[in-house]
């Protein structure tokens, strides 16, 4: 498959979807009264340079299994909304205390902590509402939509991303695998599985998508950490600061670059292995397949990326 995959133009596939998703997100959050809350929600959801990896993975998984991408767009948007909600709250002073995100001031820095709390509280339900009101019912049976809602709620919930954030903040020590799996694997897993659910995937296929999404989600983050470490190696003070801040929070911080590179290779193999059962669908597997390579190699970037 790798020679075929080299011919697949992931960048244009992704760019097209990304533009559509950006537009749909823009339409999904019009500014109404009281404007402050909508501005705050839009600030984070529509942040320039967002790659939209979860929604693209959701749409690609749906199309792989023969679903119509129109069936997947509302859920794809919802993934970005709940993800943004989690990130807004994660950045708060009482949590990670991050004054910036993607090179811009974080939500509470601009709108205040109270608005940041409420923007998150509004984006979670907006995601669920968007799925209910926008998914074409002629394309997806209602029982499947209930499963999608369940999947997303569980992914962000007390045994999913919230659990990852909790252990990240409060320990126990040496829980790096747990943290990475929950904070980053969960969103990837949820995105791929939702795409499958929307296309009516069977249990076996969902299981494979689960493995695939989880591996890609973690892979993406591990590679991010490795790249960050490498780029700051030249500035030793900056590098030490990074390591100190991320101690126990990333593979690089815990095991060093070399081991992290090895972990990334294993995750890449695991993700591709999970796709083996889908090879019977021929070229349709290429988007998900080349997505793995992208997560590992970052072979391109978008013009507006920060």
């Amino acid at each position: 498959t790798s020679s075929v995959s080299a011919n697949f133009d992931l960048k244009s596939y992704w760019s097209t979807l990304r533009e559509e998703i950006n537009q749909k997100l823009d339409e999904a959050i019009p500014v109404k009264y009281p404007a402050q809350i909508y501005e705050s929600m839009r600030y984070s959801v529509l942040a320039k340079g967002a790659k939209r990896a979860p929604p693209v993975m959701c749409v690609a998984a749906c199309e792989l299994l023969g679903g119509n991408r129109l069936a997947a767009f509302p859920t794809a948007c919802a993934l970005e909304m709940v993800h943004a909600a989690s990130l807004i709250h994660d950045d708060l002073p009482c949590m990670d205390d991050d004054p910036s995100r993607r090179g811009k001031p974080s939500n509470h820095t601009v709108f205040g902590m109270d608005m940041a709390i409420l923007a998150g509280d509004a984006l979670f339900p907006l995601g669920f509402r968007h799925i209910v009101t926008h998914t074409p019912t002629n394309l997806v049976p209602e029982t499947q939509l209930l499963r999608v809602i369940n999947e997303i709620a569980r992914a962000v919930g007390s045994t999913g991303m919230a659990a990852g954030q909790f252990v990240d903040l409060e320990g126990p020590a040496n829980a790096i695998e747990f943290i990475q799996e929950k904070k980053y694997g969960e969103m990837g897993e949820c995105s791929a599985v939702c795409g499958g659910l929307l296309a009516g995937a069977n249990d076996d296929e969902l299981q494979q998508l689960r493995r695939y999404g989880r591996a890609v989600g973690i892979l993406y983050q591990v590679v991010d950490d490795v790249l960050e470490a490498k780029s700051s190696e030249t500035d030793i003070i900056d590098y030490e600061k990074q390591v100190e801040k991320k101690k126990g929070k990333s593979y690089v911080g815990v095991y060093g670059v070399e081991k992290a590179v090895k972990v990334a290779a294993d995750l890449k193999a695991e993700a591709k292995k999970a796709l083996e059962g889908f090879e019977k669908y021929g070229e349709k597997v290429l988007p998900l397949y080349s997505f793995v390579d992208y997560a590992a190699d970052r072979s391109f970037s978008f013009a507006d990326q920060v």
């Binding site: 709940v82 909600a85 989690s86 709250h89 708060l92 009482c94 949590m95 709390i117 998150g120 509280d121 979670f124 339900p125 669920f128 809602i149 369940n150 997303i152 709620a153 569980r154 962000v156 919930g157 007390s158 919230a162 954030q165 909790f166 903040l169 409060e170």
Partner: peptide, 16 residues
């Protein structure tokens, strides 16, 4: 931090 996280978790759990 737990009040924020616990609240968020309860919000999504209501839908689940």
């Amino acid at each position: 931090e737990i009040a924020v996280l616990g609240g968020d978790a309860m919000l999504s759990f209501a839908f689940e």
